[in-house]
Amino acid sequence: MIKLKRNILFVGAFLLLSLTACGGKIKNPQLVINEVMIVNESNYMDEFGQRNAWIEIYNNTAATKNVGGMFLTTDKNNPKMYAIPLGDVLTQIKPHQHRLFWADNEPFHGTFHTNFKIDPTRENYIALYDVDGKTLVDEITIPAGMEADRTYGYEIDGVKYDNSGNILAKVLDRATPSSNNQVVGENPKIVSLKETDQEGLMLTITSMLVVFVGLILLFLIFNTIGNTASNLSKKRKERKSDQKNVEISTDSSITGDEIAAISAALHELMDDQHDVESSVLTIQQIQRNYSPWSFKAQTLRRNPRR
């Protein structure tokens, strides 16, 4: 009983610890206004050979997202300023990919040309609203006085907040239209492992610890369940034996051989009760299921009617 309580206490403590870890962490939006250029003098050019301000949207999820039907705006009071056209396959943004919109007030130049321009002399608010025109997907405020050909956004694609919930937007070192803001050549986890754990010992110890913790918890839970189950069945047995007043031997000193011998004897006895069946030949009826694939009538030509 003490063991049982100890197990419950241990598992309970672990669960409590897990619950305390459930914090109200602020999540990054699924679609992020990732990088914005306000004054474009000698940077990226559109398909008409014009340079204008641009807005880059980043799909922060592992699934393809369609921005068709969503709204881009520079006015909080007018969320439906530019409706991103429906029916263009290019509005589908692949996982962790980008799409660029030109703020050039030339909506007839194509899906990705908005009906508004950005004023570089003042602070600019840009927001992306969902298809209902009410649900805010993401917003960003770019300070006034941005230098020419410089962009404002997030250093790591899609990472809008730090652990404390502060917004990480800043003037970026270089403009990277339709590509990652931070170029990652190698897996950072591998790079750090190569530096800090060349022999692989730390990873081994950590991993073995996790494997053991996981399986020890499983052990404790099933130990507890097992103990509870056997306590319950013992009580049930006691109650039954009290009712019937019959003593059932639960002598654990019986060996496997003895159990096997008793079972064999019982089998013999039961078998003897059925002395007829062994000499009777039973013919089971075989049922052929109908199948149009093998039905002969389907393959034969019928006689012509006269």
């Binding site: 991993s207 996981g214 399986l215 052990f219 130990n223 097992g226």
Partner: peptide, 14 residues
């Protein structure tokens, strides 16, 4: 389930 401590052998072999 009958003898949960055997789970730990499975862990050790990893």
């Amino acid at each position: 389930i009958a003898n949960p401590k055997l789970i730990l052998i499975g862990a050790a072999c990893q």
